[in-house]
Nucleic acid binder design. Structure first.
Length: 464
RNA sequence: GGCGGCAUAGCCAAGUGGUAAGGCGGAGGCCUGCAAAGCCUUUAUCCCCCGGUUCGAAUCCGGGUGCCGCCUCCA
């Protein structure tokens, strides 16, 4: 079997074959850094993280680029309302964004280009488009003329005529200086509300449109043609469609080979919204005491093209599932003698995991395979059939698969000496059949956040 | 109004023509001084509803209902 992805462009599952053997160029649309990202955003970033990790697991050398949109209407509005400089606002939320990525064990992309650092590249790109006759000017702004790109709509599978019909009644034509409401802006002429957010360029005083930044930065980092471009489904139209138009017209080459889009997240079955009270940033959830790994699990466990329902029941389930994997690893680590190898079982698990993931990143199926492995090995341990060699093999397998999931990291905390002393005291009480005393110690430790589990080889203590 | 996606047990969620993975939760049992962890059994005669195609459908087709997305710079 080979690695296959559903390509939004063709709506087919296609075997993944990178443009250059062994190497993958991957661009993912990142956040607009004017606020804290919410868990819906992070679902997309975790999907992209899973994709990148799996490509690497499969031996590809991945170059992952994620943009940061740091100039845009909402940011400018914030600056105008608060008087805070643009860079100050975006710097603060960029820092918060990276903290959140770390909390969720999302691997860093290889570069995070920010739009305002690529103004020169955007200007060059717009000039190229102008030379090739794809643009026009109106009131100091530069627009892309959609009628100059007949293939427009190939990604979203929408027809230009349908867009025009759809727009009727919804678009206030007074807001547009463009010749056609469907045309989009490449360069926005400065207006008074922009304050000191502008660049003096060959195209005049103003700022870039949103779509052009991704074309400019993606091509700068990955070349005119690259392998994978990701984002949320809402980006398909118009953002990614516009990127295709700009990039293809400028370079004359196919922009992206595979487009992968992530479905949205609902919370408790409803669209997240502040008025419903189900709108959450990562910080909101951490403040409720939910572990970041449980959030990662809840966000990753649904196939990326399926709408995912984030609920507190689901988070509780994720927390318990994580504990099961953690306990499994603790047990394996304690095996000191006896038993044999688990090479065959490990191979079955690894093969099953890969078969599922190869099929358009079927993470639910892959996790199912891991749990079947856990159950089988737990049973073998119960029967005393697992030795140090087998335990090491199983732990190595989980560590390997953890490179993909980021969910199996064993987080053990060394118990302080006073806790160990109490554990020892309890063991002595048990030996002398003073169970009241033993239970009293166990309850006290539980209250302090330490759980005791008795095993044939002694007591195990872990963070509750 | 146009385009598209989704609907599987209490919860999360795989499965796209051959008779319902997995996890959480619940119930019973084994183990344990008691627990915890683990193991075993059990928990959807059925996959939103109504028709149809087929020897056979959760899976295909038609209609309906509900939720979600896009159609103006929200992942």
């Amino acid at each position: 079997m080979s690695l296959r992805f559903l390509n939004t462009l063709t709506r087919q599952k296609e075997t993944f074959e990178p443009l250059q053997a062994g190497r993958v160029g991957m661009y993912t649309c990142g956040p607009t850094i004017y606020n804290y990202a919410h868990i819906g955003n992070f679902r997309a970033y975790i999907f992209e993280d899973l994709l990148r990790r799996y490509l690497e697991f499969r031996g590809f050398d991945v170059d992952h680029i994620m943009n940061l949109t740091d100039v845009e209407d909402k940011i400018i509005r914030t600056c105008r309302e608060t008087g805070e400089p643009l860079k100050s606002v975006t710097g603060r939320y960029a820092a918060a964004f990276f903290e959140d990525l770390d909390a969720l064990s999302i691997q860093r992309a290889h570069a995070y280009p920010a739009a305002t650092d690529y103004i020169a590249e955007m200007i060059e790109l717009i000039k190229t488009l102008r030379e090739k006759g794809h643009t026009y000017e109106a009131d100091g702004s530069v627009y892309f003329r959609l009628s100059s790109f007949p293939e427009y709509g190939q990604l979203s599978h929408m027809k230009l005529e349908e867009l025009r019909d759809g727009a009727s009644g919804r678009v206030d034509s007074d807001e547009y200086e463009s010749e056609d409401a469907r045309d989009f802006v490449l360069w926005k002429a400065w207006v008074e509300e922009d304050g000191d957010v502008f660049w003096e360029t060959e195209l005049g005083k103003g700022r870039p449109g949103w779509h052009i930044e991704c074309s400019a930065m993606a091509m700068k980092h990955l070349g005119p043609s690259f392998d994978i471009h990701c984002g949320g489904v809402d980006n398909i139209f118009p953002h990614h469609e516009n990127e295709i138009a700009q990039s293809t017209c400028a370079s004359g080459k196919t922009f992206v080979k595979y487009w992968l889009h992530c479905a949205h997240l609902v919370v408790e079955g409803k669209k997240m919204s502040k008025s419903l009270g189900n709108f959450y940033t990562l910080r909101d959830l951490l403040a409720k005491g939910i572990s970041p790994l449980a959030i990662r699990w809840a966000l990753i466990a649904t196939h990326y093209r399926q709408p995912s329902n984030f609920s507190f029941d689901a988070v509780e389930g994720a927390t318990q599932a994580l504990a099961r994997i953690q306990d499994f690893q603790r047990r394996l680590k304690e095996i000191k003698s006896g038993g044999g190898s688990l090479a065959d079982r490990c191979q079955v698990c690894r093969d099953g995991f890969i078969a599922a993931m190869d099929d358009d990143l079927n993470i639910s199926g892959a996790l199912g395979v891991v749990f079947e492995f856990v159950r089988d090995v737990n049973k073998l341990m119960e029967e005393g059939k697992v030795g140090p060699e087998g335990a090491a093999e199983a732990l190595a397998l989980l560590a390997s698969l953890n490179q993909v999931t980021g969910l199996f990291t064993l987080r053990d905390e060394e118990a302080p000496q006073e806790v160990l002393d109490q554990v020892q005291a309890r063991q002595e009480a048990r030996r002398s059949k003073d169970f009241a005393r033993a239970d009293q110690i166990r309850d006290a430790l539980a209250a302090a956040g330490w759980a005791i589990e008795d095993t044939p080889d002694g007591a195990r203590v872990k963070r509750a």
